[in-house]
Design a protein around this nucleic acid. Structure first.
Length: 129
RNA sequence: GGAGCAGGUCAAAUGAUCGCCGGCACCGCCUCGAACGGUGCGGGAGGAAAGUCCGGGCUCCCAAGGGCAGGAUGCUGGGUAACACCCAGUCUCGGCGACGAGCAGGAAAGUGCCACAGAGAGCAGACCGCCCUGCCAUUGGCAGGGUAAGGGUGAAAGGGUGAGGUAAGAGCUCACCAGUCCCGGUGGUGACAUCGGGAGCUAGGCAAACCCCAUCCGGAGCAAGACCGAAUAGGAGAGCGUUUGAGGGCGGCCCGUCCGAGCUCUCGGGUUGGUUGCUUGAUUCUGCCGGCAACGGCAGAACUAGAGGAAUGAUCAUUGCCCCUUCCAUUCCCGGGGAACGGGAAAGGGGUCACAGAACCCGGCUUAAGACCUGCUCCAAAC
RNA sequence: UGGGGGAUCGUCCAGCGGCAGGACUGCAGACUCUGGAUCUGCCUACCUAGGUUCGAAUCCUAGUCCCCCAG
């Protein structure tokens, strides 16, 4: 539904997602978990923390316990794609965001994933600010 | 048509837009290079990538020596770098059949086990029965002995049938059959098959029990290993030792051999980065030749993922395929004389398929799970 | 990714080819005015599927799940 209603101007924009916009070290994950805030949706747990940079960074946690390798890859791709397309809609300041998938997430389509994620990330700024 | 057996192929396709990973070329930045940013070109998961069950390559352990221990394999011949794999056969078993399965050496080398039941379960064995003798006695009982034909037990009771024989019986004797061993012939490289002769009359099962025999195996694993850099410290305490040798290579042990001045434990502290190994290889495809086949040889062509919190995706459109809807109403085709009805197509909606994601690389095995094609078998029907 | 270990009543363990046992728990009964403690009895299990064997928790093969170690 989001792709269908998107304007031609928005469609033609590029949404790059380079390596610098990802969390890659164990320490970074640990810091977000320790110092950040947490918000829960039906299929994900979202931890976030202001990082002092001009952009947001994304980290994904998909446990081996609930899915096999193919399902884990699909969930991570959906989450990454949702973040890439909706990154400009998440309000600044720049944050480190860690998304933890919960059981049931493998049944979600990528469009629904994006909706759920964006709702969680825009809503959280209201009460806190 | 139904049920089944064997083999093979595929793993939706095309285009557009936005992204990801690495390669090459160019440009920018910069003293140069690296890094970073940008542009262009051409790549980017599997048949099982999986489980990690075997076998190799590769790397390090100086070299990988001898013996013991340990492990693996186990019909025959071949293939291979190697294998527990594959191919072709033999034997046994299963199936009406196509066909499939088999850890398929040795039980007369030795040891062990065979619960319960049963008289007896391993140089067999008398509970009932049968027979003989003696004693008491008149249908019978007791004692001693003989007997494996019958009953009964058991998963299994030491060949089968018939005749002779006997007190009753017994391979005790004989004939036939089955099986064992020995010798010889024929076919086959061989497992083995088949034929003839002889011996002797029984020799149970379990080796996925210990074991014996034959063959093979050094250990660890890319988190192997190599290089660069950073940080802390060149700490404190205890023990052993310096050529009469601690400790190590050595991995379970011994022999042998080599290195050899430090080694081990505790406390305290630091780093927990980058490059490389990393993809051209027992590689793939095509053709010819050898071979029943697995496979091998020769020639030509091709380059086909290299990530690292971990790359292949998302959206849209079209086609193909599949599923659902059609209560009322609409169109076409087929079956039907027509109607009812049934089937198919159009139309509309949805899905993009099942199993599943490379982590040093190959060869297998096993497990997971779709679709299609070819050949064959059995049954049913029709001709 | 590689290397190793395990699975037995509700829980923790034993069992090495022939009846599956112990402790705690649970239930019932006895004792007691009642409860606790004690005593007696009962309930309940071999991870799954094939194979070897007369017979498998045990031996062999394949699978499932869980745990540990290595940067």
């Amino acid at each position: 539904m989001m792709g269908g209603t998107a304007s031609p101007h928005e469609r033609q924009r590029s949404f790059p997602f380079p390596k610098t916009h990802r969390l890659r070290k164990p320490g970074e994950f640990a810091r977000v978990k320790a110092e950040g805030r947490r918000r829960r949706t039906t299929h994900f747990t979202v931890n976030y923390r202001i990082n002092g940079l001009a952009h947001h960074r994304l980290g994904l946690v998909v446990q081996k316990k609930f899915w096999n390798a193919a399902q884990r890859n699909r969930i991570k791709r959906c989450l990454r794609e949702s973040f890439r397309l909706n990154r400009h809609l998440i309000p600044l300041p720049g944050k480190d965001i860690v998304v933890v998938a919960r059981p049931g997430a493998e049944k979600l389509s990528c469009q629904d994933t994006g909706k759920e994620l964006l709702a969680a990330l825009t809503k959280q700024d209201g009460p806190s600010a």
